[in-house]
């Protein structure tokens, strides 16, 4: 399957995670995606060594969201200059250890030559689950219940989409608009999302017609996720 199709979740371009020069000829480029209710680590393995590379396996260190491989790594033996694309399903059911940044993943890759290590950052929107629509009553009660001192506000600039498109793009990434109001020409979107570990986040977007800067307000009982959530809005609304 093509990454990103199906759910319409935003998939960042692959980045080189492991340099061949640092891994005896093994290069790994990768990204993260979410499709069919599952997270994937989409990777391209390239053999830049002069001999065959084989016997690949992967291990993830403990991380903030308990992400572990949901299957064995499937990479064939690679001849020199050969590349292979693989998609590793991930499951959020492993042991938890807080990482900094929050969605940092430490990865170990073994092959017939050696073991190599790298880290990469999971875009947090791949952890937004499909059943993240909060009941309207609960939203209103929770919004009231969380103290204004726990509200975090961000400006997101250079957003060129209109309110409908903003709502659709966010929804494609499991950020759900549960109410929309217009007050004196200003659109207010009330939205919810839920992370794989059950943490709910309530957001409000203020959109002024003709103004490309929009205001994101965020309330959650777990404020630690705020920065990563803001970054996900930023990413989704600029792609």
């Amino acid at each position: 399957g093509t990454p990103g199709l199906g759910g319409g979740c935003y998939v960042p371009p692959k980045q080189v995670w492991l340099l061949a020069a640092k891994a005896k000829g093994l290069e790994i480029a990768g990204t993260f995606s979410r499709r069919q209710n599952q997270i994937f680590m989409d990777m391209t393995f390239t053999n830049r060594a002069l001999t065959q590379l084989s016997g690949f396996a992967i291990q993830l260190n403990k991380n903030s969201f308990g992400i572990i491989p949901g299957a064995q790594l499937n990479v064939v033996a690679l001849n020199p200059n050969q590349s292979f694309d693989t998609s590793l399903p991930l499951s959020p059911v492993g042991p938890i250890q807080r990482m900094d940044p929050l969605t940092n993943l430490q990865v170990a890759i073994k092959n017939n030559i050696d073991v190599f290590y790298f880290s990469c950052i999971m875009p947090i929107h791949t952890l937004f689950v499909e059943d993240g629509v909060m009941d309207k009553k609960i939203y209103l009660a929770t919004w009231k219940d969380i103290s204004p001192s726990n509200e975090i506000q961000y400006q997101i600039s250079n957003v060129t989409y209109n309110t409908d498109t903003i709502s659709q793009k966010l929804q494609a990434n499991n950020i759900f608009t549960i109410a929309r109001r217009n007050v004196e020409g200003q659109d207010m979107l009330y939205q919810s999302l839920k992370l794989t570990n059950g943490i709910w986040v309530l957001t409000e977007l203020k959109i002024m017609p003709g103004n490309t800067s929009i205001t994101l307000s965020l309330k959650s009982r777990a404020v630690d996720v705020a920065t990563a959530i803001q970054q996900s809005f930023d990413l989704i609304l600029h792609n």
Binding site: K136, Q186, M188, Y190
Partner: peptide
């Protein structure tokens, strides 16, 4: 059942209070 008009009103009120900084 759930009184939706009441909920709608609550969101309108929330939006009203939040629209002015």
């Amino acid at each position: 059942g759930i009184d939706d008009s009441n909920l709608d009103d609550s969101f309108s009120k929330l939006a009203q209070t939040r629209s002015n900084p």
